[in-house]
Write a protein that binds this DNA or RNA. Sequence first.
DNA 1: CGCTAATGGATGACGTGTCAACCATCGGGG
DNA 2: CCCCGATGGTTGACACGTCATCCATTAGCG
Lengths: 170, 170
Amino acid sequence: MDHVRWLDEREARAWRRFQSLSARLDAALARSLADGSDLSYPDYSVLVVLTDQPGGRLRTNELATELGWEKSRVSHHVTRMAERGLVRREQCPSDQRGSYVAVTEEGRAAIDRAAPSHVAAVRRLFVDRLTPRQLDALAEISAIGLAALGDDPAGPAPDRQGRGQRGGRS
Amino acid sequence: MDHVRWLDEREARAWRRFQSLSARLDAALARSLADGSDLSYPDYSVLVVLTDQPGGRLRTNELATELGWEKSRVSHHVTRMAERGLVRREQCPSDQRGSYVAVTEEGRAAIDRAAPSHVAAVRRLFVDRLTPRQLDALAEISAIGLAALGDDPAGPAPDRQGRGQRGGRS
DNA sequence: CGCTAATGGATGACGTGTCAACCATCGGGG
DNA sequence: CCCCGATGGTTGACACGTCATCCATTAGCG
């Protein structure tokens, strides 16, 4: 059976728009973050995870899992952020090959400055435009997709990346 | 009023999962495309648009609009694709500063080879897991988001990028 | 006609992401 | 105790995107 099932009209419409939305929304948020702070979107994601951590530090590989990034990506990005003083690498006492990544004071200050306007943008450009029902539908649909990717959204890794809500108190 | 409305639990769940899904789905499709063809995801998108065009060519700026890309991105990417023989730049007779981008035979062959497995992946990883109702809900939600970004999804630019369905006959 | 502003596009620099090695350390058998 | 595979992490090469800048052409208008 070498016959291909192309997407029908309903499927194509949903898929196209979904693709388009994720690309543009991402771009818009990155831009909004870029002016109004000197953090990139990836910077922001890293800082969110770290500042949510008691002690503000995490083993590099746990940071990777938490973000859903490859280890090499984490390594590269941490290097760049460390050069800018946003985070710091620390030795791990119990495992000689391991290391911690820790937020610096400067990192905390940066995300505290950036977060309000970022969350506002998330609301303005998306979340506030959806009804509670739509929010739940979106969560459900996304969960299905994530499951198909072998990634249990409420599963083993307890809450996945990108909590745009700025987890911590502050 | 300097008080920030963070996302509540329902909003955060939907937003987090949506973010996570788009990132991972994109990555998965890129990888699936990468082995099984020598096209990247961006390559694929460009070729879809061009092959859907009568004559297989388009003015550079229309290509940009169609894809939702910045002109500089198009320019860079077309350069890379031209080096690999997938597309070709052509002079525009009516406007001396303009140019066309045209698919080559090699480009057509490449996308014809890549498309079936790509569409299969889109189905397997996402579309086939959703009910018709969910597809419609997703289309609706995405339309709202696109509108918030000032991008009318069924509007002036008549069908936006990323038609994963492989538009043309073949 | 001549000037100016807008348009189409290319380019360089730089930040980002992936892949494929690579190295060190750790842990578990023989 | 030693070796060997797994684990944690880094690095270099390269593709990709964005921004700012630049240049040529074109369109509008006095």
